[in-house]
């Protein structure tokens, strides 16, 4: 009995034919697991490696390069809220917005609220500079984020 459900394993296997080598399915597999389980535990790494015919250290090596993934002992909240700290956003109030969100959520960037609702993070430029300061709600841009707009968003995420 592993940590990956049969369904999850099947979804990873379904990706394999798209690539000439199984190893290329590493990021897609990590995304699938990470999205659903909100972490990629060591056990999950081993199970992914089995499907991709890799040594677990190869999956682990790739995964840890991308600080994006949370590993053993870490866990994402229900929603990931990234606040952009890139130059275009900084020039339009991003640093103040980060402080505002930290105060509102009672956590620092990189931490998850105790109720597990939100993981707050900073991001480098998220390519939404026409709506600076901008945030990313999981993988969707939120543009022109005023403190009031941030408050509404946070309230919504807490209720989710």
């Amino acid at each position: 009995m592993g940590v990956l459900s049969d369904d999850l394993k099947a979804r990873i296997r379904a990706v394999l034919p798209k690539y000439p080598r199984k190893q290329a399915a590493t990021l897609p597999a990590l995304h699938l697991v990470h999205d659903q389980l909100r972490t990629v535990s060591n056990e999950a790494v081993v199970e992914i490696a089995e499907i991709l015919d890799l040594h677990p250290s190869e999956v682990f090596d790739a995964m840890t390069f991308y600080a994006f993934y949370k590993g053993e002992g870490e866990r994402l909240g229900k929603t990931r809220l990234w606040v952009c700290r890139g130059l275009a956003c900084m020039l339009r109030g991003a640093y103040e917005l980060i402080e505002h969100c930290e105060a509102k959520l009672g956590v620092h960037c990189g931490q998850t609220t105790p109720d597990g609702a939100v993981t707050l993070e900073f991001a480098e430029c998220i390519g939404a500079c026409d709506g600076a300061p901008a945030c990313l709600r999981d993988d969707v841009h939120v543009m022109d984020v005023t403190p009031e707009k941030a408050d509404e968003l946070i309230q919504e995420l807490r209720r989710k």
């Binding site: 600080a67 994006f68 949370k70 640093y95 402080e99 620092h108 960037c109 990189g110 931490q111 993070e121």
Partner: peptide
């Protein structure tokens, strides 16, 4: 002040 270097980007 502030802005600790943590996070995933």
């Amino acid at each position: 002040k502030g802005l600790e270097v943590v996070g995933a980007h």
